[in-house]
Amino acid sequence: MTGWLVASALACLLLKLAGYLLPTAVLADPRVGRTTDLVTAGCLAALVVVQTVGGDAGPALDARVAALLVAAVALLLRAPFVVVVLLGAATAAGLRAAGIG
């Protein structure tokens, strides 16, 4: 496991370094910047889904769905990152303490 973590960390570091070593002309093709943007958004969107409904035995709906909804409302109200995360945790923990989800 540690080997994979080190490899993942080094891969991310090498990507950062590549930005400083590659010729700036790479950015002349608008598809490069746009595709990178969309891969980032696509990954994060999929991670939201997996983290919210993923389970050991297939998809499951539980307190995490409520946590995500509360987080979305907090983001609409322009709450800072830390507050959004804390509200997500509090919602899931609160519902479970009440015996739901």
Partner: peptide, 25 residues
């Protein structure tokens, strides 16, 4: 028990949020 899985879902949504302003994204 501490809702950390809910916190992770909220964290990913918060990272994604500012990128959603662009309609195509």
């Amino acid at each position: 028990r501490w809702g950390l899985d809910g916190a992770a879902a909220a964290a990913f949504l918060a990272l994604l949020w500012p990128r959603l302003r662009r309609r195509e994204t």
